[in-house]
Each structure stands twice: as structure tokens, then as C-alpha cells.
Design a protein around this nucleic acid. Structure first.
Length: 810
RNA sequence: GCACCCGUGGCGGAACAGGCAGACGCGCCGGAUUUAGGAUCCGGUCCGAAAGGGUGCGGGUUCAAGUCCCGCCGGGUGUACCA
């Protein structure tokens, strides 16, 4: 029961897709090639993971934004690069491969092919000659190359650490991949495990990543999320004495000026000094019991017990305040984390709510050092005069007192100012098969030796059985032909690293490879990088603005520092699209059964209706529910566009009575596309077509302008009409219409007339009429007059072209 | 808990930079066409008979507030014992 269509989209869609393909019209010109003299525009959308489920309507919306902008830019005379590729390493493919006994290579190839066919069926103007796939050796050769460069510079290193481990996926996860204590992929509870793992020293770039945000044009909330993620805080490291040991207990605090308010210390349960001085701790058995209890707690429990502090006093160990020599008890408690700062804190219960709660529970003194709150009721974190604080007494400005405290600490050698980041080094390895092999050899003589550059790519060996090993060993470890090798440095027997890189590796630099995807000599040619960088506009999902974007900015900044890329920031501008929700207003998911398949939509309505609807359904940056009935509005609109041909007079310019409408619409559509306000751009075209139909005829010039403006949204139908009315060449290559500002204003305007702020009438008057004239006309209005007559006029306000407000009294 | 964003008809959403709230679309109502239904076309559609009232609630600033300020209530996103 498919609905009647006014135009044969099945034939038309295919016809134009084939013609664009054959003419290679979306191929970007590299420097030196014809077309490269135009200004360049590099539009980037997040490349998809080619899942077996195929495309999702969310992909369509994500790509359609820059698709429309790219098509408009081409028509405006830009040399546009709008590439597409596939981020194809990763667990879903591997898990599917294991389940079905198919090799992940095969699975990936099949999925990629399907994605390409689907993307083409929607008519996206991607430059397919630049297609990349992160799992191809030609690509990951350079992923490995970058890794080795980082290794050389000491930014890739191995360390033993407590890691987040997913027992289900059998992999080590970064903090980013295990938020909330759940595995990002399978949502199982993760556990802590001690392991020797690879890290990338992203923390070394923390400040650069923060500072770089000042020079880029990201949406404000995107910048804010990155700032929060980096989580820079300024404070001081303070060394407390550890009584009778000669040892220092080092802590980090943002408020060193509250040192006189310290009444206890807290160490994380795992703190190494506990073991070192275990012999001095009288209640070590209790300590061990508490530690065991903490280790059992899942993240979820810890969150639930947010308010209920637990802990234990260390009997026999005692800290000494470096400023006043006071002895201070030491506790262990799991509200202090080993992973942040030094794993120990000075507790100032009067001015920190967590410390306050702990002090209450354990009956510890609370000493006020900042006036202004009621420390009997709760901790006071505000500003105020310093008291009970020796040389700090009397300070009222936080900045000054902190500086004074740090100066004193430095003077007596008990500490110094310091900076901390929430961001941690990036755990950079997985014990899985379907990823880039880490190109390192472990030699008993030489230690860790990089695989020589001329031996890259280090190919992933073909395996039949690639399920992860028990205990989380990489499947590659089961393959002696891969593992056993000669040390590149000394030639003796050695073992290859068997871990692979995490999913985020390949996507950290893909935008560079698009610039020169087939280069065998370097990751991309210098001249081409110089020409194309930075990415002018990057659009993607909010879920990637921290992890993926920070990782890729880090890689890019590193490549800049070693002279490989010419810009220090990769992306000049970043925006994000909102989700498409299911018709029920919930997030689309298979389990809810509310998933809309874009191909079903293409099948029923054609690509142009799908493209138009995903942009018309609401504000591009906000989530909006899919509406199976609302999409009909877009179908009707395009049917009406197809119907314009029948009322086309065949000749003539823009008719007088539609002139300002056309100029206004050109302006509105152009500006709205630039501002990603696609919904109102389409609405403006709908308004214009309604005006055209009111007139019952359209000139050839009017029709040309109309379909040119609509082309980025509905390229197939508009190409077809263009051909019918004898347009030269392809509409996709036509010139974008320009408007005359002077013609966007009407000669007569309708002015709202208010009396005391209430609308009482309207007057039509020449747009350039003087204030007096307009007000006189307003007063002449019968209804207005009835509200004004016999009253004292206090004020007359005239907003040119808009409104008159007559303020009366009495 | 903290940070940011958002609350507008039956629905999705418009409203530059404080200036006619509800553009555009869906749905709905009526009419035309049709054997009928669908599709299409035309008209109507914030509430109210009207005066008037309307942008989550309560205050404020202003000639004028969806928009600015203060305090609530509700929702979303991010982050979470970060010292």
C-alpha cells in the first residue's frame, strides 16, 4: 500500500547517483590540480563503525548536516573535501566473528561494502576516491608509525598498574571506557586488576590541550566538557612529617592556606606507605580487613555510600604539621583515591564537606580557619577572614592567603605549588585480536625494542581461533610464529608484544590520511597537509567530544611538535548533532523495537525525502523523535516541487510581486545553512513554494533559483527538474544564487500599533516613512483612536518597520 | 552533590540583538474532486461567545519580557568522594 508518488524517485535517485559517480564531481582537487586555486573547505564527519546492523537513521542525520553545507560550498566556488571512511577495528566485529566462526576481515569487508552501498543510495556527496579503512595494512602501517614516534619520545611507555578489567570482554579498559564501573561495550561490572600495561603520556599534553581550546571555534558546551575532562586544578604539594620515621607523607591540596585547620590525615587504603611501615601499625590486622572490604566494593556500592564515610585509624603512625609542629592522627578511608593527587590528603573538616562528615563520624576536632559559616552545621567552603592560623590570620582574599602559604612552605622546605589534572595517562592496549599490533619486540638483552620503520606494517597474522585467552591474554600470544622473533637490535631470540591497540587508535589521526590516502612514503604529503589543514568544520556526536576529540587533538599536537603536520590544532570548528529518538520519544534501540531503518524510508519515499526530513524534524543540535506521519510533510513538499514544472511558463525573470520573497529566501536559506539551522531553511523554501502556488505560475528563472536553493537537501529531484528545464551541466555544479540586500526589504511594511503595550491594530505604510507620519497613521486607526481619545499621551515609541507603542494615562 | 543546557498549541518545533508569540510541518475540522477509500486541491485551527487571557510556577526591571534579573518546580546531558 505504498502511497502514490508524484515523481519516480526510484528511477531518478539511481540515475543521478550514477551520473555524479561517472563524472567524479565530488572529487576534491589536491594542490596543483585544476580546482585547487579555489578556496579550500575541508568538511569532516565522524567516520562510522561498520556494524553488521548497517546504517542507522542517526548516521543519516550526522552526515546530512555537513553534506548540505558541502554541497552549498561547492556551488559557492569552494574546493570541497568531504571524505568518508570506516573505523573498523573493534570488539563488536570480533565478537560477531567469534560467534559465527567468520574471520573479522571477511566480516569487516562485507559490512563496509554494505555501508558504502547504503551511503550511496542516499546520495551523499562524499569523495569516495579517498575512502579509508583503519583495518587495512596501508592504513595501520601509519598508526603503528605514529606509535613508534611516541615510543621514541617517551610518550608510549609500560607500567604496572591497577587497571580496569572487564571479565566479560576479557580486556583492560581505560578509565574513559569504564565509566560508572561498567564496561563501555558489554556493560558488565569491571574489576580492578594489577597488570603490566601500555600507556600514552597524554598528561604531558594536558596544558597544551587546554590552551589550544582558546584558538578554536567549538560550541561552548563542547569546550566546557573538554575543560572539565582535563580537570586542571591549582594548589600545592605539602610534605607532612611521619613521626619517628624520617619519612614524609606527601599530600596535594587546593587550599594550602587552611593548613592550620588540619585535624587528621587520610590515606587511600592502597597507599604504599602503609605497607612500608606495617610493623609500626598496631592494628594492621584491622587495616588488612578494611582493605579487603574496600576491594570487594563495586563502584556502584561506593557511589551509593557517597554520604556514609567509612575508615579506620592507623594505630602507631602519626603525621606532623610542617607549619605548627602539631601531631595529627592518620586514617585510611576509601573516599580518598590512590589515583588522584598523591593518594593522601590533609583533612580540614571545617572547610571540606567530606572531611566534615568523616570527622563527625569519628569524633575528630573541627577547627575553623575561615570565618563566615556555621561549622557546627556543615563545612564552610566560602570566602572569609582567616583565623586561628598564625601568620595567615587576617587574610580575606583566598588568592593572597594561598600564595602566602605556598611561599612559607617553600621557605621551610615543606612543599611547593603544584598543578593536578583529572585526566590520566591513556591505557593504550587491549588483549584482543582485532586491532593494530603494537610494533614492539621484547628482547631479554635490549629490553623493549621498536620494530624498525622499514618493517612496518607489522601485520596482524591470520588466525583461525582468535577468541581471547583465559586470564586475559591476547590471542596473538598463542601463535609462536608471531611471538617468536629476532631482536632487531642484537639479533638474538626475542618475543613480540602481543597486545593490540585500543579502538581509539585508528580514529586519532584519520582526518590526516584522507588528505593523502594512498601515499606509501609517509602518512601524508607535506604540501597536501599544508593545503588542507586544518579541518574547517568537524561535526559529530556529543559522545565523542571528550574521548575521541581529546585523543586526536593529542596525537595531532604531538605530530605538530615533531614537525609532521603544519598546524597545532586539527579542527578549526566543531559542532554536534542531536540524537534521533524513536517515535515513542525514547532512545532508539533494538530491545525497545523502535529503530527506524533509513533504507526502509528510502524505499518508501526516496532519498530526498529522507534527507530533507532528518534536517526538518527539529533543531539540528537537539534530540527529536522520529515521526512517521510528520515525514509526509516533506514528501508533500517535494511532490509540490515536482509539480512546479507543470506550471512553469518557460521563460521570464523574477516576477515583480515575488522579487522580495526570492531575495529574502536566498538570504535566509544561505544564512541558515551556514548556521546549521536547516529546519528553518527548509521552512523558508516551503513558504516560498506556497507563495508560488498562490500565483499559479512560475517563471523559468524563479524555478531555477528555487531548485538551486533546494539542491543541497534534495539533489536528485532538483537535478531532474534542472535537466527538464534545459539547465546547463549538472545542477550540483551550478552557481549558488546571490541576493541583493536592497531587494530583501519591502517598500511597504505593516506596523503593529500598541496602546500601553497592548496590540490594538496595524497600519500599512511606506517603509521609509518618518516617525511622525507613522504615529499619525497609527492614531488614525479607528480602534487605536478609541483607546487613545480623551487620554493624556505620555510617550510615543516607534521601532522602525516594526511597531508603535502609544503610552497613555487616565 | 556539582557544572552546563532546556521547559512555548493536540504533536515536532519557529520567534534577529527586549518589539505583532505560535513561522513551517504534522494532526484535526469543514468543503471540492471521487462509486468509495486513498491521494490531491481550497478554507479553518492557542484558549475564550466576548471583554480578555495565554510561553513550567512566584516575584522584579521596562513603554514593551518566551527573551533580561532573583527565587522555586520539572526534565535532559556531562561528571562524580578530584582533596
Amino acid at each position: 500500500m505504498s502511497e502514490e508518488v508524484r515523481y519516480d524517485f526510484r528511477r531518478i535517485d539511481k540515475k543521478w547517483q550514477d551520473r555524479w559517480d561517472a563524472a567524479h564531481i565530488f572529487r576534491a582537487a589536491d594542490p596543483g590540480e585544476p580546482g585547487s586555486e579555489k578556496p579550500k573547505f575541508y568538511a569532516l564527519v565522524e567516520f562510522p563503525y561498520p556494524s553488521g546492523a548497517g546504517m542507522h537513521v542517526g548516521h543519516i542525520k550526522a552526515f546530512s548536516g555537513l553534506e548540505v553545507i558541502s554541497r552549498m560550498r561547492r556551488m559557492q566556488g569552494y574546493n570541497v573535501m568531504f571524505p568518508m571512511g570506516f573505523d573498523a577495528f573493534g570488539l563488536p566485529t570480533e565478537n560477531y566473528a567469534i560467534k559465527t566462526g567468520t574471520h573479522p576481515r571477511t566480516v569487516t569487508d562485507v559490512n563496509v561494502e554494505r555501508f558504502i552501498a547504503q551511503l550511496k543510495s542516499v546520495g551523499f556527496s562524499f569523495d569516495w576516491s579517498r575512502k579509508i579503512d583503519t583495518t587495512e595494512t596501508d592504513y595501520y602501517k601509519w598508526t603503528q608509525w605514529i606509535f613508534l614516534k611516541m615510543f621514541e619520545k617517551g610518550l608510549a611507555f609500560r607500567d604496572t598498574a591497577l587497571v580496569n578489567y572487564c571479565p566479560h570482554c576479557k580486556v583492560v579498559l581505560s578509565n574513559e571506557d569504564s565509566q560508572g564501573g561498567k564496561c563501555d561495550i558489554c556493560h558488565s561490572d569491571i574489576v580492578q586488576k594489577s597488570k603490566d600495561v601500555w600507556y600514552l603520556r597524554i598528561t604531558e599534553y594536558a596544558d597544551k590541550l587546554l590552551q589550544g581550546l582558546e584558538e578554536v571555534d567549538y560550541l561552548p558546551n563542547i569546550k566546557q566538557q573538554q575543560i572539565n575532562w582535563i580537570g586542571r586544578s591549582e594548589g600545592a604539594f605539602v610534605n607532612f612529617g611521619l613521626k619517628d620515621t624520617g619519612e614524609k607523607l606527601r599530600i596535594y591540596t587546593t587550599r594550602p592556606d587552611t593548613l592550620f585547620g588540619v585535624t587528621f590525615m587520610v590515606m587511600a587504603p592502597e597507599h604504599p606507605l602503609i605497607d612500608k611501615y606495617a610493623s609500626k601499625i598496631a592494628n594492621m590486622a584491622d587495616v588488612e580487613a578494611y582493605r579487603a572490604e574496600c576491594a570487594k566494593k563495586t563502584e556502584f556500592d561506593r557511589t551509593q555510600m557517597n554520604k556514609d564515610k567509612t575508615g579506620l585509624k592507623l594505630d602507631g603512625l602519626c603525621a606532623v604539621n610542617p607549619l605548627n609542629g602539631k601531631e595529627i592522627p592518620i586514617y585510611i578511608a576509601d573516599y580518598v583515591m590512590m589515583g588522584y593527587g598523591t593518594g593522601a590528603i590533609m583533612a580540614v573538616p571545617a572547610h571540606d564537606q567530606r572531611d566534615w562528615e568523616f570527622a563527625r563520624k569519628f569524633g575528630i576536632d573541627v577547627i575553623e580557619v575561615i570565618k563566615g559559616g556555621d561549622i557546627e552545621k556543615e563545612a564552610y567552603a566560602g570566602d572569609g577572614e582567616m583565623v586561628n592560623s598564625g601568620f595567615l590570620n587576617g587574610f580575606t582574599n583566598k588568592k593572597d592567603s594561598i600564595r602566602r602559604a605556598i611561599d612559607e612552605l617553600v621557605k621551610i622546605g615543606a612543599g611547593e605549588g603544584g598543578v593536578q589534572y583529572k585526566m590520566k595517562d591513556w591505557a593504550f592496549n587491549r588483549q584482543r585480536y582485532w586491532g593494530e599490533p603494537i610494533p614492539i619486540v621484547h628482547c631479554p638483552e635490549c629490553g623493549m625494542v621498536p620494530v624498525p620503520y622499514d618493517e612496518l606494517p607489522l601485520c596482524l597474522p591470520d588466525m583461525k581461533e582468535f577468541a581471547p585467552g583465559q586470564g586475559g591474554e591476547s590471542p596473538l600470544a598463542r601463535m609462536p610464529e608471531f611471538v617468536n622473533c629476532k631482536c632487531p637490535r642484537c639479533g638474538k631470540d626475542a618475543r613480540r608484544e602481543t597486545d593490540t591497540m585500543p579502538q581509539w587508535a585508528g580514529s586519532s589521526w584519520y582526518f590526516l590520511r584522507y588528505i593523502d590516502p594512498h601515499n606509501n612514503n609517509c602518512l601524508a604529503d607535506e604540501k597536501k597537509l599544508e593545503y588542507w589543514l586544518p579541518v574547517d568544520w568537524y561535526n559529530g556526536g556529543m559522545e565523542h567530544v571528550t574521548r575521541h576529540m581529546i585523543y586526536s587533538r593529542f596525537w595531532h599536537k604531538f605530530l605538530y611538535d615533531i614537525g609532521v603536520v603544519p598546524t597545532d590544532e586539527p579542527y578549526a570548528k566543531r559542532t554536534a548533532q542531536g540524537l534521533i529518538l524513536g517515535p515513542d520519544g525514547e532512545k532508539m534501540s533494538k530491545s525497545r523495537g523502535n529503530v527506524v531503518d533509513p533504507l526502509d524510508v528510502v524505499d518508501e519515499y526516496g532519498a530526498d525525502v529522507l534527507r530533507t526530513y532528518v534536517l526538518f524534524m527539529g533543531d539540528y543540535g537537539s534530540a527529536a523523535p522520529w515521526s512517521p506521519s510528520s515525514i509526509k510533510g516533506c514528501k508533500r513538499f517535494l511532490d509540490r516541487v515536482a509539480g512546479l514544472e507543470a506550471i512553469c511558463s518557460g521563460s521570464g525573470g523574477i516576477s515583480k510581486d515575488l522579487e522580495s520573497s526570492f531575495h529574502k529566501t536566498i538570504k535566509k536559506v544561505t544564512e541558515d545553512i551556514d548556521g546549521m539551522k536547516f529546519n528553518t531553511a527548509i521552512a523558508a523554501l516551503m513558504t516560498l513554494i506556497n507563495e508560488i502556488y498562490d500565483k499559479k505560475s512560475v517563471t523559468r528563472d524563479e524555478l531555477s533559483i528555487f531548485i538551486t536553493l533546494l539542491n543541497p537537501f534534495a539533489p536528485h529531484l532538483t537535478e531532474e527538474i534542472w535537466e527538464h528545464i534545459g539547465g546547463k551541466g549538472l545542477l550540483s555544479l551550478a552557481k549558488w544564487p546571490e541576493y541583493d540586500e536592497a531587494k530583501t526589504v519591502d517598500s511597504t511594511v505593516e506596523i503593529a500599533v500598541q496602546v500601553n503595550g497592548k496590540l490594538r491594530g496595524t497600519v500599512k505604510i511606506a517603509a521609509d516613512a518618518a516617525k511622525d507620519e507613522v504615529i499619525a497613521a497609527a492614531k488614525a486607526d479607528e480602534k487605536v483612536a478609541s483607546f487613545v481619545d480623551g487620554k493624556e499621551i505620555v510617550k510615543e515609541i516607534y521601532v522602525p518597520g516594526k511597531l508603535v507603542n502609544i503610552v497613555v494615562r487616565g
